[in-house]
Structures are given as C-alpha cells and as structure tokens.
Simulated scan of single mutants.
Amino acid sequence: MSQSPAAPLITLAPGVLYLPGAVNSFVVVGRGTDALLVDTGLDDAHARKLLRAVEAAGLTPSGILNTHSHADHHGGNAQILRRFPELKVFAPPLEDAIITHPILEPLTLFGARPPRELQNKFLLAPPSPARLAPEPGLCRIGGADIELIEVAGHASMMFAVRVGEVLYAADALFGPEALEKHPLTFCADSGLQKASAAALAQLEGVRTVLPGHGVPTDDLAGLVAVNLRAYGRTTQAVLAAVRAGDASIDELLARVCGALGVTMTNAGAVVLNRAVVSAHLTELLELGRVEMKVSGNKLIFGVQA
C-alpha cells in the first residue's frame, strides 16, 4: 500500500513554519537545511507526520525543543530519536527531568505510583533524554536562532518561542475552540498562568501568534483577553463552589464540573481536573479568599472567616 502524501508544513514567516494538529509542532529553519523541531506531538503517529512534512520541505531535523513536559508535547520525541539518534532534546528546568523520567507526570497527578489506567499515552509518554535549554532570552538551538520567553503556570515551567514577528505561545495561550472544549484549562499554578498570559500581551512587534492548541492569529491582545477571561471564570467557579459550603477537593471538583458543564468519564480526566481545582484553590488561599482546615479526617476548604 502506497504511503499517503505528507501534510505540508504551513509557513508563518520566512524560515518559520508549523505542522497543525491536536498539538501544533513549530519548526524553525536554521543554517542551511537545519530544522529545529519545537514540540513533537502526542505519539509516534504525529511524529511520523512531522518527519514526512519536514522531509518534504527539504529540511533535516537538527534539534528538539520541548516547551514543557506534558505528554502531548513530547510524546513524539522517541519516534524522532529512533530516526535521528544524534539529536539533542532541550527543555526548561524541571520539565527536562519529567521528559527524561515521564512516570513523574502521572505519579504527581495521582500522588503515588499510578494505577494502570493512568499509565496511558496521554499522561505517560515514552522517555527521552532531555537536557536543560538555555536561559530565557536570545539563543541558538539546533542551528536555529530563537528567543525563549518564560511563561510558567500551565506547567511548572514553560517557554514560549519567538522568532522575529512570530510567537509560538505553547500552552500559555489556547485557541478559543480549545478553551470552549476544555473549560477547566489545565494549570499547575493558576496565578502564574494568568500573569504569563498577561505578559505576552505586552510584547511589541508580534504579527502572528500560534497557540499550542488552535490556529494562528494576528490578534495577540484579543487572544490573551479570551484566555484571561477563561482562566478567571475557572477561579470564580472554584470560589463559588467553596461558598456553597465547606467541602473536600473532590466534592468541590464535582460542583465546579456541574457549574461549567463538564462530564468526566475516565480516571485521567478526574486527576487532571482535580489538579486544576487544586491550583485555583491555592491561588484563592494566597489571596485570603478561602481557608483550609482538617475536619473529620478530610482536608476541607471553606470561605475565609
């Protein structure tokens, strides 16, 4: 059976391209035919599409940069490294450890060695040997000149990537459809998530912004505003759930899901959304809006007295 034609890379600017998908892969052309691959997708299937598209464009992978350690952004590393074992993988601090030891992601979400149901490709990518990326600022990786911008919040650490007038926002910003589909937008630190998004709006000279999930837009300020409204709506939903009566995190999660129209049908969704509620509770605790106590052998959250 003949192989289907490769989906082409889409040009955002000269030497700056991307492969659309459930997660976008960002490609920056460096010296000659060198191509830095930024985020390799969820699995081998996406990685194969990425490699075919890069090859069809006359380019050769010269390095991998993972903006953060969530499985859908580095799950394709292993397939690419099988083809190009000499490539170096770069990632932000802490994120490099999780990419190297992916069991840390479901272990952290579950709080102990995760059951088999949580050891799937959405939470547990194949391991790849990641190393620390350069500090934020102008740098060269895989022969490509880029600017790394710290945008922690969605993950413990994360980098956006700027090349001239093009910004790959990674998961600091989501497209409107992704926000509507996933109203409990994942975050490790909801306060930082909001601050990072707001900081991106202050960038000057950005003509095109590509979110990690969604389509490119020329309206950076508008995209930031949509994301900040969504993040704030989650905080308010968590606060309203607490105001409905003292409750545990799991009880609050059920209330928040009811308010936002979220239906969870598997354990992965529960642990991910539980983490989101926990992040917003921490923000509200630090703002003095809620309090935490132990009652009846349960960790309980209530309105600040």
Results as ranks from 00 to 15, higher is better:
293 K>L: 08
220 L>Q: 10
282 T>N: 14
230 A>K: 02
207 R>F: 02
233 R>G: 12
200 L>S: 05
244 A>M: 09
248 S>Y: 01
261 G>V: 03
296 G>M: 03
262 V>T: 01
226 V>I: 11
296 G>F: 10
270 V>L: 06
297 N>V: 10
272 L>P: 02
232 G>R: 05
267 A>R: 10
203 L>Y: 06
241 A>G: 15
277 V>F: 06
294 V>P: 10
191 G>R: 14
237 A>M: 07
273 N>W: 00
223 L>T: 14
285 L>K: 11
233 R>C: 09
293 K>M: 11
241 A>S: 15
289 R>N: 11
252 L>T: 00
234 T>W: 00
210 L>V: 08
293 K>R: 14
195 A>E: 15
220 L>R: 09
227 N>R: 04
290 V>T: 14
222 G>D: 12
225 A>S: 12
191 G>D: 08
290 V>K: 06
213 H>S: 13
195 A>W: 08
235 T>S: 14
296 G>S: 10
249 I>T: 13
245 G>R: 06
295 S>G: 02
220 L>M: 06
283 E>R: 01
257 C>Y: 09
295 S>D: 12
248 S>G: 12
229 R>F: 04
194 K>G: 14
256 V>K: 03
279 A>T: 03
196 S>H: 08
254 A>S: 08
248 S>A: 14
291 E>P: 00
212 G>E: 04
225 A>M: 07
272 L>A: 07
218 D>E: 15
205 G>Q: 12
277 V>G: 08
213 H>R: 14
273 N>E: 06
194 K>V: 13
242 V>A: 04
223 L>K: 03
271 V>N: 10
208 T>R: 15
254 A>V: 11
285 L>A: 02
260 L>C: 07
193 Q>E: 13
214 G>M: 05
259 A>K: 01
235 T>E: 15
262 V>A: 04
246 D>G: 13
218 D>H: 14
